[in-house]
Design a protein around this nucleic acid. Structure first.
Lengths: 332, 332
DNA sequence: TTGTAAGCGTTATCAA
DNA sequence: TTGATAACGCTTACAA
């Protein structure tokens, strides 16, 4: 005994008008005489009518839904990013079909998004294969990558300017008097990690300083700590370390403080990335780099919306959002 | 020039069969002869056909979508919970319509979910008014609250057993030799915060100990620190403090260590709740309580699915998941 | 086992 | 400005 809600025809009958009149009443930019509109609205109110978006989608050949495929909401950065993306989409009246999963299941996930006729796809993910880009483009739907780019894939993206972030960190560290600087990059050399590293290196080079050591850990705590120990055991250990995210920075700091008795920030500078909750909740306020997620989300959604509208449809663009240094207590 | 994908009729033509044959091929539990199925699949493959879930929804009067309304993904606990919920739903082939927003906009959000004909609603949220419960029930769709319950609203829920969590913390603290125990509850006395407090108090009472002090802060860092300072400035300051979540616990610990020079864990025990990333990423491993999110998500989805199927449809249940103490370095 | 045809709730086109 | 009617793409009795 399924109790379905009222349909437009029920409202039409009650109001003594046609279905089209009802439809028009609930469709923006359309003409209905004030009095029919009033009748319709009254009837709708009375019946508790609500337009069926599914039927509308079928008829309009557009679902008003955007697919978002997320991996790893455990990482506060992605969780926050998802929140901002949602806000930006909702603001525009677009619904979100959420799928969570890692790259391995991506094909399957994509398939499901498409069967729901999403109008476009937003992909905030760290790890993407360029094979995936092919599937994405084959889907025929507009796609925007967020916080990641695929240089060879021909897929548009919006992300932080990681190179600039690296430079900014370099400038700050040098100004604060650090000289022996190391870098621990994120998991498996993603483009963002590489760019930050290049930025750091180039920034240091401007002051005639080398990037003394670099290594890529997973972003797991254990691996980061192991890498940090290697750094500290060198003949010339670093006096500052830049990590590819806040979580790693905290792990590195723990090694420096508890295992090697360094005094942060004087004996050792630590810099993270992302300005997540983690940076603000530890015993020290972590020096970090804010990626301006609001802006990133806003731009990504704006770009997608333009693609949906047909504008900017074919061009492949890579928008970069300027990062901002957030000084904390872990650097001088 | 909208290039739509192929429809079932195209596949049917190519395969030389009827639309129903195509439909049946893609519908589980339905009979098609192996050879027609083969023909259909071949044709579908050739055309790149993919069943249109929107059309299916309209026809079946069921969208296969569940609405999830989240607030505050900035809190790692909710982010993780969302991840688990997604996994549990996806495992069952259910799509997720995500909406993010706080209680104030809830009515609006709900309205949108319903217009998309979601089959059911999952509500992982901290703050809910019982006024909302009315709207929810009026929607006629099955609803399951996650990590929160509405005692007066007649809405089913799945959440952690907060009372048991409080008791377990009390037992541990007493066994570890702490005697002057305080509690800082979460934002605006939610049911979960109250239950944890009661559990703590009752657990202490079993050993003839009082709950010396309690206060409810927001879960913001600043407010928590202010409350902690008040505690520490009393004539008889606490020797252990239990906080309603990990974030607050870290803030409290910071005050104890840096402002009052207490030695954690010997001079001061600190206990958090949720076992989030935060507990594991600080300089100390925080002693905390794991809420078993996997189980919570699984049960919530299972309950919703049963309601969707008609079983357990009318009954209002409140399932409680047993929490587990996670000993860390912030208690003896 | 397969095909026919009638929905599902909208929107869009075209007359009136 | 309004109303009939044909899509939209699929499922599902019912008939063959």
């Amino acid at each position: 005994m399924k109790k379905r809600g009222p349909a437009s025809i029920d409202v039409a009958k009650l109001a003594g008008v046609s279905r089209s009149a009802v439809s028009r009443t609930f469709t923006p930019n359309t003409y209905v005489s004030p009095e029919t509109r009033a009748k319709v609205l009254a009837a709708a109110e009375m019946l508790g009518y609500r337009p069926n978006a599914i039927a509308r989608s079928l008829s309009k050949q557009s679902s008003g839904l955007v697919g978002v495929i997320c991996s790893d909401l455990t990482n506060p950065f992605y969780a926050e990013l998802l929140e901002r993306l949602s806000m930006a989409l909702q603001k525009r009246g677009i619904g979100i079909l959420l799928l969570v999963g890692d790259a391995s299941r991506m094909d399957d996930l994509l398939e499901r998004m498409l069967s729901y006729q999403v109008d476009g796809i937003l992909l905030p993910a760290s790890k993407l294969t360029s094979k995936l880009a092919v599937s994405l483009n084959a889907s025929g739907r507009p796609v925007v990558l967020v916080n990641h780019q695929l240089l060879d894939g021909g897929v548009s993206s919006v992300g932080g300017d990681n190179y600039a972030g690296g430079v900014v960190v370099a400038e700050m560290l040098v100004a604060a008097g650090y000289r022996r600087i190391g870098y621990i990059s994120g998991p498996e050399d993603t483009s963002s990690a590489l760019d930050r590293g290049r930025g750091l290196q180039d920034g240091l080079a401007r002051h005639g300083l080398p990037l003394l050591m670099r290594a890529s850990g997973e972003d797991s705590r254990d691996v980061t700590m192991a890498v940090m120990r290697q750094f500290m055991n060198r003949a010339e250990p670093p006096d500052a370390v830049f990590c590819a995210n806040d979580l790693m920075a905290l792990a590195a700091m723990e090694v420096a403080e508890l295992e090697f008795w360094r005094d942060v920030p004087d004996g050792m500078g630590i810099v993270g990335y992302d300005n997540t909750l983690l940076a603000r909740s530890g015993l020290h306020q972590l020096t970090t780099v804010d990626q301006n997620l609001d802006e990133m989300a806003e731009q990504a959604v704006a770009m997608l919306v333009e693609k949906l509208a047909g504008t900017r449809a074919e061009t492949v663009e890579h928008v970069k959002i300027a990062p901002r240094l957030v000084p904390g207590a872990t650097t001088r």
